[in-house]
Simulated assay, not measured.
Amino acid sequence: MGYFVTVEQGVNIYIEDVNPEGKKTILFIHGWPLNHKQFEYQFNVLPSMGYRCIAIDWRGYGNSDKPIRGYNYDRLADDIHVVIRALQLEDFTLAGHSTGGAISIRYMARYQGYGVSKLVLIDAASPSSVSEEVANMFITETLNDRPKMLRGVADIFFFQYITSPLSDWFFQLGLQAAGWSTAAIMRTLRDENVYNDLNKILVPTLIIHGIHDKVVPFINAQETNKLIKHSQLVPFQYSGHAPFYEERDKFNQLLIQFTG
């Protein structure tokens, strides 16, 4: 079931809500430059096992409205909070990938983990920023030849071989975002970080990270693990930045075990 939640005047966020009657709820927060559809291979499996699976498109991405402003971590965390309140979610697992992991971390700190009983960070953009040189390169490419930039991201995103059709699918997900929001999030990744948020996370936290990740190096996961109390780090030996796809059976089973 798909619907919209208004997070502020003139900005509606798209929600994909599968199996609303499920006994356990996971709220998925996608990464840059994608949208909720990146979790297709979780939504194929988990709802049939009794889970309510919810995913949002950030403002500027996927089916959500695409305003010019509002792409800092605080505003994106505020959007999540509005969605959680609107859906009256309680005792749920929050699972964020890449930049979505950083947004989830900011939500936990900014709202004292309201409603969240467990946290899953998937190759999260934590705790440091993206270097100025790398971020500026992505911004320049986004504003001048975004399709070429997206092809380049796909090349470093995966460790395992992916088919040309899957690469095309990944590419199309990126194109569903607005160019300005794609660049704006990269500015946020350059200019902000979540280092000081990590010690405010008090719920059990599972950190999943591909050891071959070229986007967010595995050492970042190790540092995040040290800074979050009650966290456990599970390395994915055959994944780059996309363990939710590259080792999806292991990934899904781990989610089930952690949330069970």
Rank of each mutant, 00 (worst) to 15 (best):
G152T: 10
N72L: 12
Q88M: 12
A125F: 03
F138K: 14
R85M: 06
Y114E: 15
N136A: 05
L143M: 05
D91K: 15
A95D: 12
L121P: 09
T142N: 07
P147F: 00
Q176W: 03
H97D: 10
A177I: 01
L94F: 06
S131P: 00
Y107S: 11
H97I: 00
A77R: 08
I68D: 07
A135S: 14
D74I: 13
L94M: 03
A125R: 15
N144P: 03
N72F: 05
D78S: 03
P165K: 02
T140A: 01
L89A: 03
L76D: 09
Y73P: 08
L94Y: 02
P127A: 09
V134C: 08
Y114W: 10
A178P: 03
M108Y: 05
R146E: 05
L143I: 00
V130D: 13
Q176G: 06
R146F: 03
D168V: 04
I105Q: 15
S129P: 06
G152A: 04
E133S: 14
Y161E: 15
D123P: 01
N136V: 01
I80R: 14
L150H: 14
Y71M: 04
V134A: 15
A135W: 15
L175N: 05
V83R: 15
A178Q: 07
S167M: 06
G113C: 11
S131M: 02
S164T: 02
I139W: 06
Y71R: 11
L173P: 10
G100S: 08
L119T: 05
I162G: 10
R75K: 01
A102C: 01
A154W: 03
D91S: 05
D155Q: 00
A109K: 15
T93R: 11
P147S: 05
D74Q: 13
Y107C: 07
D155F: 04
A125P: 11
R146I: 08
Y111I: 10
I103P: 03
Q176K: 09
P147M: 02
D78W: 09
V116Q: 10
A95C: 12
W180A: 08
L76V: 01
Q112M: 13
I80V: 14
Y111H: 11
T140D: 06
L150F: 12
I84G: 09
Y71E: 00
T163G: 04
W180S: 02
G174D: 00
R146M: 07
G96F: 09
S104F: 04
